[in-house]
Amino acid sequence: MKLLQRALGPATLVTLLGTFIMGMWVTPKATMLDGGGDLVRMLYVHPAVAWVALYVSFGTTTVASALYLWRRTRSVVMDRIAYCAMEVSALFIFLTLVTGSIWGRPAWGVWWAWDARLTSTAILGVFVLGYLALRRANGDPEARARRSAVFGILIALDIPIIHFAVVWWKTLHQSATVLNSTGNVLVHGSMLWTLLLSFVAFTLLFVWLLRFRYRLEVMRETSQQSRRDVAVAARQREGA
């Protein structure tokens, strides 16, 4: 386990570097996708950060929230994981929207189009802000953990709705990038490998950031517990 933890940082760096090098210099320009030329290199950033934002980080929060709510697995660890994953998710949602706008601008002619997936991602971003606001509004740790966990489950209900919105709504968005509706691969050769590498790289980046955020949260709670012990002792002295 410790070996894996030690390898996480270097592995993240190597895969990100590999994605960058391959994306910038190894893979060709392409014309088959919208926004051809060099702009196609956004292919190696935007889908991966969107994947992490919409599925990996939200999935982590949802699973951790569910495990917190289930009595057998309820623990402060699950609450911490859910919260930290949501904070990291905020970063990836921001990156998704920014990279999506950059990629879409030449193709659509505008920075923001009322595209189903872009709009849905923005809505998820508001969900994340709402989650973080809910955490800050609740002072009591146990109540905060419960409310956040329930909210994490509620958000999960919206994710499939967003997914189907891509299919059912009129959209300007890039249609499925890797697989088409019959499962045939659309991207080939070095582009495909670079794309897959980007997914691995950004997923590792998420895990790496989550790990560090988790450690910060543990330190914060330890400090808070010390303050509580001091507060209890001071309260007891009131009665002496």
Partner: peptide, 14 residues
Amino acid sequence: AVVMRNDFPLLSGV
């Protein structure tokens, strides 16, 4: 019995 509310001990060992 200790009861905390917003980091304040309402009860500090009853």
